[in-house]
Computed example of a mutant assay.
Amino acid sequence: MWMRDTCQRMSSKNPIAQAMSYFLRRPDMFTRFLHDGRICLTNNAAERALRGIALGRKAWLFARSDRGGERAAAMYSLIVTARLNLVDPKAWLADVLVLINDMPNPRLHELLPWHWKTLHQSNNTIEA
């Protein structure tokens, strides 16, 4: 294989040789998109999703404690999950805050955005 031969002739400290060596240790990871057309060739979607975090970093600097930072991260994660499931985060959060107090622990998973969306779609169908 051309890459293996070229990599062996280069110094191991050469950045190109290091990159080639990295690829050669994991060829299946770098060629998976050839076998599964659902895999995106770029990480643009992930970078766009993280853009809000980068922009808010300065505002979140003063979370006052590690626990406050963890809570902010959990809330942000829930909001992004709702968006990824095409659920309005404000409507979902408002409804969940009303329902969560009366919901038994074994059923809390029903309040997750993808379950909530299904429940509201079926309720909207009944009302329509």
Rank of each mutant, 00 (worst) to 15 (best):
S12I: 06
A46Y: 01
K13E: 14
D95W: 04
I79D: 05
G52W: 03
R67Y: 07
K117L: 13
M103S: 04
C7T: 15
W114T: 07
E127C: 04
M10V: 03
T81N: 10
F30E: 01
L34G: 09
L24F: 07
G69Q: 00
L112N: 07
W114Q: 12
I16M: 09
S77Q: 10
W114I: 08
V96G: 00
S21D: 14
L50F: 10
A82D: 07
L61Y: 11
G56M: 13
R32P: 00
V96M: 07
W60V: 00
L111F: 04
T81L: 09
K117N: 12
R32Y: 08
H109M: 10
L108M: 08
G69A: 08
L50S: 03
L50N: 03
T125L: 15
E110H: 06
L111P: 06
A45W: 03
R4I: 04
F23L: 15
G37P: 08
E47N: 09
A45Y: 03
A17T: 01
L61A: 15
R51K: 14
R83D: 00
M103T: 15
F62V: 08
R51M: 10
F33L: 12
I16D: 03
T125K: 15
T81G: 04
P15E: 01
A49M: 04
E127N: 10
V96L: 08
P89W: 06
H115R: 13
Y76T: 03
A73Y: 05
S65N: 02
S12E: 13
F23R: 06
T42G: 04
L93V: 08
L61C: 13
R51Y: 08
M1I: 02
L41G: 15
F62D: 07
H120G: 02
A59L: 12
A63E: 06
L34H: 11
Q8I: 05
Y22Q: 06
W114L: 11
P104G: 06
A82L: 08
A46I: 02
I16N: 09
T6D: 12
W60M: 05
M75T: 11
R38W: 05
V80M: 15
G52F: 03
D102L: 07
R71C: 05
H35G: 13
H120N: 12
P113F: 11
I126A: 14
N124T: 07
S12P: 08
R9F: 03
R48E: 05
M20V: 04
R48S: 05
A72N: 11
I53Q: 02
H109R: 11
A128D: 10
R51H: 10
N105T: 13
I53P: 00
P113M: 10
G52A: 06
R67P: 00
S21I: 02
T42L: 00
W116F: 11
A45R: 13
V96K: 03
S122H: 06
M10T: 05
